[in-house]
């Protein structure tokens, strides 16, 4: 499918990490995205017209209180949900009009997810949880390599119940990055963690973004985390309230809350 939108820059340096968003390629282009949930008789407007571009290799933090629509937006970007109205494109994929098969394909080939509640399979070891993804991915690293990246090489054969919360979240990150995705979407990755463990997890995410050039979106209600991002997008009541460019990215180790 040819790119129709003029916002889509037609450059070919998408794999290289760039400081400037302007020269980088917009991988996500969202226009007029709305999402309405029907809960019985009531219509809940989760998103009320979002226009947004996300660029290759950038690290974005989406801030917002609960109910601001940030999770809904993340789910739509990740192909887990479709908007009620508006368009979302990922490179040459139209996520708005894709059917389940196409969305599954998209998630399998391009997206890595990290969830607040880890969502790791309790009946599988750390290594097997990662293998779950590498077995179906096109160009994965080995589960061992991925676990090494998050510092869990020694605990690969432990079951989730034998791991701490921070370790479980690192397994979830290893699982998300093992397929070498172009996009890493993290939903409150530190939400269930204490500060120290949370920082370790953020460092891992930051390193993945830096070393693999993965376009990374972290959603959180924690303002402090925003300091590690290149851009901070604030959501409120289903709309983008503010987009802020950080002059300097602060390393996660310096962040506290």
């Amino acid at each position: 499918m040819p790119a129709e939108k003029k916002e889509v820059a037609d450059t070919h340096d998408s794999t290289s990490v760039s400081d400037s968003a302007a020269v980088s390629e917009a991988v996500f282009v969202a226009r007029g995205v709305t999402k309405v949930y029907r809960m019985g008789e009531v219509h809940v407007h989760a998103l009320r017209g979002i226009d947004l571009d996300l660029y290759a290799g950038e690290l974005v933090v989406m801030l917002g209180a609960s109910g601001s629509g940030k999770s809904t937006l993340l789910n739509i970007l990740g192909g887990l949900d479709v908007p009620t109205d508006g368009t979302v494109r990922y490179r040459d994929h139209d996520l708005t009009r894709a059917d389940d098969v196409a969305l599954t394909r998209y998630r399998r080939d391009h997206v890595g997810f990290v969830f607040q509640l880890y969502n790791i399979i309790p009946s599988l070891t750390a290594r097997e949880n990662v293998a779950l993804v590498t077995e179906i991915a096109r160009n994965p690293m080995s589960p061992e390599e991925a676990l090494d990246m998050v510092g869990l090489k020694e605990r690969m054969d432990h079951f989730p119940a034998q791991l701490s919360g921070g370790e479980q979240q690192r397994v979830a990150i290893a699982r998300a990055v093992a397929k070498q995705p172009e996009v890493l979407l993290c939903d409150e990755p530190t939400g269930a963690l204490d500060v120290r463990t949370g920082v370790v997890v953020l460092e891992v995410i930051e390193r993945i973004n830096r070393e693999l050039g993965t376009t990374t979106v972290i959603i959180t209600h924690n303002v402090s985390i925003a300091e590690m991002a290149e851009r901070v997008i604030s959501l409120s009541d289903g709309r983008i309230a503010e987009i802020k460019q950080n002059r300097t990215k602060r390393p996660p180790a310096e962040i506290t809350w």
């Binding site: 887990l80 599954t104 998630r107 399998r108 997810f113 509640l117 969502n119 779950l132 993804v133 179906i136």
Partner: peptide, 14 residues
Amino acid sequence: REQIAALKAFGYSR
């Protein structure tokens, strides 16, 4: 439920 959701998110088909 959550496991199924995660599997779907990783790209396991229906």
